[in-house]
Structure formats: C-alpha cells, structure tokens
Amino acid sequence: HNLTITQGKLFFHYNPKLCLSEIHKMEEVSGTKGRQERNDIALKTNGDQASCENELLKFSYIRTSFDKILLRWEPYWPPDFRDLLGFMLFYKEAPYQNVTEFDGQDACGSNSWTVVDIDPPLRSNDPKSQNHPGWLMRGLKPWTQYAIFVKTLVTFSDERRTYGAKSDIIYVQTDATNPSVPLDPISVSNSSSQIILKWKPPSDPNGNITHYLVFWERQAEDSELFELDYCLKGLKLPSRTWSPPFESEDSQKHNQSEYEDSAGECCSCPKTDSQILKELEESSFRKTFEDYLHNVVFVPRKTSSGTGAEDPRPSRKRRSLGDVGNVTVAVPTVAAFPNTSSTSVPTSPEEHRPFEKVVNKESLVISGLRHFTGYRIELQACNQDTPEERCSVAAYVSARTMPEAKADDIVGPVTHEIFENNVVHLMWQEPKEPNGLIVLYEVSYRRYGDEELHLCVSRKHFALERGCRLRGLSPGNYSVRIRATSLAGNGSWTEPTYFYVTDYLDVPSNIA
C-alpha cells in the first residue's frame, strides 16, 4: 500500500525493539523526510534493546553428524571492536523451508527459537588472519532439518551509529543413524509349514526405512522333555500350542467401542483428552525405555581390526524358502538304536541362519518350516543398504507352526516275539517326523474274553527296548493296539495285532 503524509511529521519514542533503520525507511515511504526535528525521533529510546544489523554474515563451514552440527561463519568486528559482546545463534526444527525470524513471537518477546549466546573469538592483530567464530550444536535429532541463523550482539553506541551483522536463515539436516526397533511384532501360524509375521514401523526411523531383515531359527525343545518319565503317576503330560491366527481386521481397528449394538453396526467412541494424553505418555515412556535398553543392555560386537582377528559373527547367506525346513542338525536320541526319531534339535552355532529381506511392506510369510516346531524370529529395521547396512537392534518374537495331521501315527506293522515265561516283546517304529517329539506310547492289549488293559511306555523305555515287553501273560489269544502321544496330543491307534500265548508248562520236552 502507498502511504503519503502531505502535512505533519513523524514522532517515535520509547520503541526499544524498533531499529532506527526501520524508522528511516518509514520517513522515505511516507514522504516526511526532512520535516522531523532532532528530538522527534529519539536516538536513545528507539532500538536500544534490539540488534540492528546492516551487514550480512556468511557461514564459512558446515559439518553434520547424526546428532551434531558444527558451524563456522566469517569474522565480524565493528569499528570499535570492544562493542562486540558476542553472537546469538538461533535454531529450531523446520520440516519445511518457510521459516521466518519472527515465527511464534508474542507480545512478551518470546519466540519459538532456541538461542545460544556465543563469546567472540580472540581478536588477531592481523586483519587478514582473524579467527572464524563458530559453535557445535549438540543433542539434535537424527535425520531432522533445522533452520539456523546467527547475528551479532553489540553494545549501545553513544554516537548512535547503527552497526551489526546478521546471516540469512539456512537449512541444515542432520545425518541418518540406526533406527529404533520395529514396533509390535506379531507372529502367527496359518499352516503346519508357515508363519505369518506382521509389525509396525519404528517410532524413530532416523532416516528413510529402506528394508527390513527377518531372521528365523528353529528352537530346540526343553531338555526336561527328553529326561522326564511322563508315565509316572502324578506327572502331567506336557503340551505345546501353536500360535493362533490373526483376529479379523475389524476387531483390530483402534479407537473402536468394545460393545456392539445388537441391531447392527455401531460407531466408534472418540477417545477423551485424558485417554489420548495417557497414550502419549505411555508411548514416550516406551521410547525412553527402549533407548535405555539399547544403550545399557546391548553391547556392540567388536569388529575385526587390522591384526587379522576374525569377526566372530557368522556370515549372512541367503537361502531359498524351500530350504528352511531342514535348518537344524538332527541327532538321534540314543545312538545305539537307529530307529528312534531325530527330534532332539541342538543347533550348531556355526550354522548360517536363513533370512529374508523385506522391502516396502511390514509383513512376511515364512514358508518351508517344520510342522509343530518353535521358531525364534528376529526382526531388524534398516535405513541404508549400501555401502553397508545400517540397521536397528533386533526385536524378537516366537511362534510355533501348526501340527501336521497323521504325523504322530505309527507307520509300519507292530511285530512281536514270544519268549519263555510268557513274555512277549512288542516292537514298532517311532514316527519319523512327529509333531514336536514323542513323549510316550500307549499300549492297549486284551486277552479274548477279558477286559482291555493299558500300559504306558516312556520315551526312554522305548529307546532301550525298541518297544516294550509284556510279562506274566496268561495263555490265550491276544490283540494289541499302540498309539503315540506327542507334544500336540495323541496320534491314531494302530491296526490290531494278534498273537497267541501258550502255557509254557505244557511245552513238550526233548528229553527222552
């Protein structure tokens, strides 16, 4: 807008934040220059609390790290170098490059900038070799853009010569660093050979998330399962459950009422301010606690030095998902009996873990797994792929695949051998790939016309006998059925096997 004052003059007093240069501009645009008398524009009460600059400061050096910015700028000295009290560095987070010096300023003089007072450097006698002032900004957020400017702080001049310097606002972004852990990993099994893994992005990506790394490792069953005799009275049979499938998407929606109208769909109840505040506090606490764990609990591995020492970490090797089922080394339970199943799973520490690289999504279907087997899954978020990966501390989750139908069934015939004193040795093959492992066998036998009897055969007993022995049988026709019990439950009964026990007292003698 054009402003013209045809008559009258300007009068400025007691404006401590208004620089004289701005008042002189007002004289020019209003056409009143030359009308004012000496005392109409006070030299001592206008701009006496402001830094009124008329020179431009330029930054000469900028260096960044993930949490620091090192700045240096060209030296500046007023005509009387004693008038320079120091520099004021202003900075704040700036997602967009549209910041002005006066953003967030209120009537009390406060604003949204963080201000650092910096002492002037030592003055050199040689004007050509003056030290460049600077400042190291610490405690910054990774991968965050900051708006920065600097200006001088000078003393009051009796001659009211307006001098000083100020830089333009520059924008500097800190470097990326390792992201925080992925949030809320959930693993479920939808079949006997697959596990579905879902997660949420890290709360602090500290860069642009480029991919996720998912490692999985087959877990050995508890050692007590191999040692305890679950045929003993009072000892509860062990059981394991597989990871249940995901709930429906509708039930997972946030901010939804727990109660549904019987007449149909209901609208979600909005969260109160107290609920939102509580969630923010919980989120802040979780982030602080995660940072504490990362800094205190997890110790970084030592990389190899120039002395030739090897990095103890196993090298990563990509495998196809079809090879995942046989990740671990199978060892027989008892070496003397080769027909026992290889369900003991000690994992070799030198073995390469299978892994998958996930790009542009937060889910993965891990296939080719062994049925009813526990897996430990390790999830890392990465925001750099080359020249070397920059990934987060791992988040861990466990899951067990679903049982395989008929995996616990005894394959092959049940054979028998009759000894003296009416002892019958029953023999059968253990299931080759049971659900988890076989903890015991149930032997059901009966003599024709009598009630059915049951015998429990422990895992250890089966390994020693290759089956079991029935003792003290009365003469007669017998039928026997056997079924295995694994961590997933009972298998199917075998087809009945028949044998006849004679009275050993009636056996004919070869003595003449």
Rank of each mutant, 00 (worst) to 15 (best):
Pro245Trp: 11
Asn490Thr: 14
Ser315Ala: 08
Cys266Asp: 13
Phe285Gln: 12
Ser341Phe: 09
Arg313Lys: 14
Leu228Ser: 12
Asn435Gly: 01
Lys271Val: 06
Glu221Gln: 04
Tyr375Ala: 01
Arg301Ala: 04
Lys233Leu: 14
Pro387Tyr: 14
Gly207Arg: 06
Lys278Asp: 15
Pro434Met: 05
Leu487Phe: 14
Ser474Leu: 09
Gln256His: 10
Tyr498Asn: 10
Cys391Gln: 02
Leu453Gly: 11
Pro300Met: 15
Thr303Trp: 07
Leu470Lys: 00
Glu227Tyr: 06
Leu213His: 05
Arg218Tyr: 12
Gln275Thr: 12
Gly449Cys: 06
Cys468Ala: 06
Ser274Cys: 15
Val214Glu: 00
Lys317His: 12
Asp222Asn: 11
Lys236Asp: 09
Thr303His: 11
Ala399Val: 11
Ser305Gly: 10
Arg318Gly: 03
Thr303Asp: 15
Ser458Trp: 03
Arg471Ser: 08
Asn435Asp: 01
Gly207Gln: 02
Asp291Pro: 08
Ser268Glu: 13
Tyr396Gly: 11
Lys432Leu: 12
Phe499Ser: 00
Arg313Asp: 06
Gly368Met: 11
Gly449Ile: 10
Gly306Ile: 13
Val443Met: 06
Leu440His: 13
Ser304Gln: 13
His371Cys: 07
Gly489Ile: 08
Glu265Arg: 15
Leu237Asn: 07
Trp216Lys: 11
Leu470Glu: 00
Pro244Lys: 07
Val397Asn: 11
Leu321Pro: 10
Asn490Ala: 04
Phe215Glu: 03
Thr340Asp: 12
Glu433Tyr: 09
Leu505Ile: 14
Ser341Trp: 08
Leu440Gly: 07
Gln252Gly: 14
Phe337Arg: 13
Arg481Lys: 13
Trp216Met: 14
Phe285Val: 06
Arg446Trp: 04
His454Phe: 01
Lys361Pro: 10
Phe499Trp: 02
Asp291Met: 12
Leu455Tyr: 10
Val397His: 15
Phe246Thr: 12
Glu378Ala: 14
Ala335Asp: 15
Met402Gln: 15
Phe215His: 10
Asp250Thr: 07
Glu417Thr: 12
Lys361Asp: 04
Ser284Trp: 14
Leu473Met: 11
Leu237Ser: 08
Leu379Trp: 03
Glu221Trp: 14
Ser474Tyr: 12
Arg319Gln: 07
Ser320Gly: 15
Lys302Ile: 10
Arg318Leu: 12
Val214Lys: 00
His211Lys: 06
Phe337Thr: 13
Phe298Leu: 10
Gly472Leu: 08
Gly368His: 04
Ser474Pro: 07
Cys266Ile: 14
His211Arg: 06
Tyr500Leu: 10
Val324Asp: 04
Pro244Phe: 09
Val439His: 09
Asp323Pro: 09
Ser363Ile: 10
Thr347Met: 15
Phe215Pro: 00
Ser509Ala: 08
His352Asn: 05
Leu321Gly: 06
Lys406Thr: 11
Gly436Asp: 10
Pro387Gly: 12
Glu495Val: 03
Thr307Leu: 13
Val423Trp: 06
Cys267Lys: 09
Leu464Asp: 06
Ser458Leu: 09
Thr485Asp: 10
Trp242His: 10
Gln429Ser: 15
Leu369Ile: 02
Asp291Ala: 11
Glu282Arg: 11
Pro354Val: 07
Gly449Glu: 11
Asn422Arg: 11
Tyr292Ala: 05
Val296Cys: 15
Glu265Gln: 12
Gln252Ser: 14
Leu232Thr: 12
Lys302Tyr: 10
Glu265Asp: 14
Ser304Cys: 04
Leu237Thr: 09
Pro508Ser: 04
Asp506Arg: 14
Gly412Gln: 11
Tyr504Glu: 15
Lys460Asn: 15
Val457Ile: 09
Thr210Val: 11
Gln275Leu: 08
Ile377Trp: 03
Leu473Asp: 00
Val327Gly: 08
Ser458Tyr: 11
Met402Asp: 11
Arg319Leu: 07
Glu465Pro: 01
Leu277Thr: 07
Thr241Val: 14
Asp409Ser: 09
Arg286Glu: 14
Thr340His: 05
Val365Gln: 13
Thr343Arg: 06
Thr241Lys: 09
Ser257Lys: 07
Trp493Ser: 02
His371Leu: 08
Val324Met: 11
His461Val: 11
Arg313Asn: 07
Ser305Trp: 12
Leu225Cys: 05
Met427Trp: 06
Thr343Gln: 08
His454Gly: 15
Pro387Arg: 08
Val424Glu: 02
Leu237Tyr: 02
Glu279His: 12
Ser262Asn: 11
Ser458Thr: 13
Phe372Pro: 01
Leu321Trp: 08
Ser243His: 11
Glu465Ala: 10
Arg481Gly: 02
Asn490Asp: 02
Pro496Ile: 04
Val345Ser: 11
Tyr478Phe: 05
Ser243Ile: 09
Leu235Thr: 05
Asn339Leu: 08
Glu388Val: 11
Glu281His: 14
Ser509Gln: 13
Thr485Lys: 13
Arg319Trp: 07
Pro434Glu: 02
Tyr230Asn: 13
Pro338Cys: 09
Arg370Ala: 13
Val327Asp: 10
Tyr504Thr: 15
Gln384Ile: 07
Asp229Ser: 09
Gln256Asp: 14
Tyr292Lys: 08
Ser479Arg: 08
Glu442Cys: 11
Trp493Glu: 02
Phe246Cys: 10
Cys269Arg: 11
Cys266Ser: 11
Phe462His: 11
Ser367Gln: 09
Val457Ser: 02
Ser320Thr: 11
Val501Thr: 04
Asn421Val: 10
Ala407Asp: 04
Leu225Pro: 07
Pro413Gln: 15
Asp503Ala: 07
Leu440Arg: 07
Phe372Met: 06
Gly472Asn: 09
Tyr500Arg: 06
Ser243Trp: 08
Thr497Met: 13
Glu279Lys: 02
Leu369Ala: 03
Gly449Pro: 11
Gly412Leu: 10
Cys269Phe: 09
Val334Lys: 15
His371Trp: 09
Pro434Cys: 04
His454Arg: 09
Gly264Leu: 14
Pro312Thr: 12
Arg353Gly: 15
Gly306Arg: 12
Gln384Leu: 05
Ser486Tyr: 01
Lys432Thr: 12
Ser363Thr: 11
Arg301Leu: 08
Asn490Ile: 02
Gly467Glu: 02
Lys302Phe: 12
Thr303Ile: 11
Tyr504Asn: 04
Val414Ala: 03
Cys468Phe: 08
Thr340Gln: 07
Tyr292Ser: 10
Ser444Val: 15
Phe355Trp: 08
Val424Ala: 10
Gly207Ser: 15
Gly322Cys: 12
Glu452Met: 05
Asp250Met: 12
Gly412His: 06
Asn255Glu: 07
Asp273Leu: 09
Ala484Ile: 03
His454Trp: 04
Thr343Asp: 06
His425Pro: 01
Ala309Glu: 13
Arg471Leu: 06
Arg370Val: 11
Gln384Ala: 02
Met427Ile: 11
Gly368Asp: 07
Val457Thr: 08
Arg313Tyr: 09
Met427Thr: 11
Thr288Leu: 12
Arg240Thr: 13
Phe499Glu: 00
Phe499Cys: 03
Lys460Cys: 12
Leu455Lys: 04
Val480Ala: 06
Arg481Gln: 03
Gly322Pro: 13
His416Leu: 10
Asp506Gln: 15
Pro434His: 04
Thr307Tyr: 14
Glu265Ala: 14
Val443Phe: 01
Phe499Gln: 00
Arg301Thr: 14
Ser367Lys: 10
Val424Arg: 04
Ala336Thr: 09
Cys266Pro: 08
Thr340Met: 14
Val327Leu: 11
Val329Asp: 15
Arg319Met: 08
Glu258Val: 05
Leu437Phe: 03
Ile377Glu: 00
Ser367Met: 07
Phe298Thr: 09
Val480Gln: 03
Glu362Tyr: 14
Ile209Thr: 14
Arg390Gly: 13
Ser239Leu: 12
Glu420Ser: 03
Thr494Gly: 01
Lys317Thr: 10
Lys287Ala: 06
Cys468Lys: 06
Gly264Asp: 15
Gly207Cys: 01
Lys253Ser: 11
Asn477Asp: 07
Asn339Gln: 09
Glu282Ile: 14
Ser243Asp: 09
Gln384Phe: 11
Trp242Ile: 08
Phe337Gln: 10
Ser243Asn: 13
Val345Asp: 06
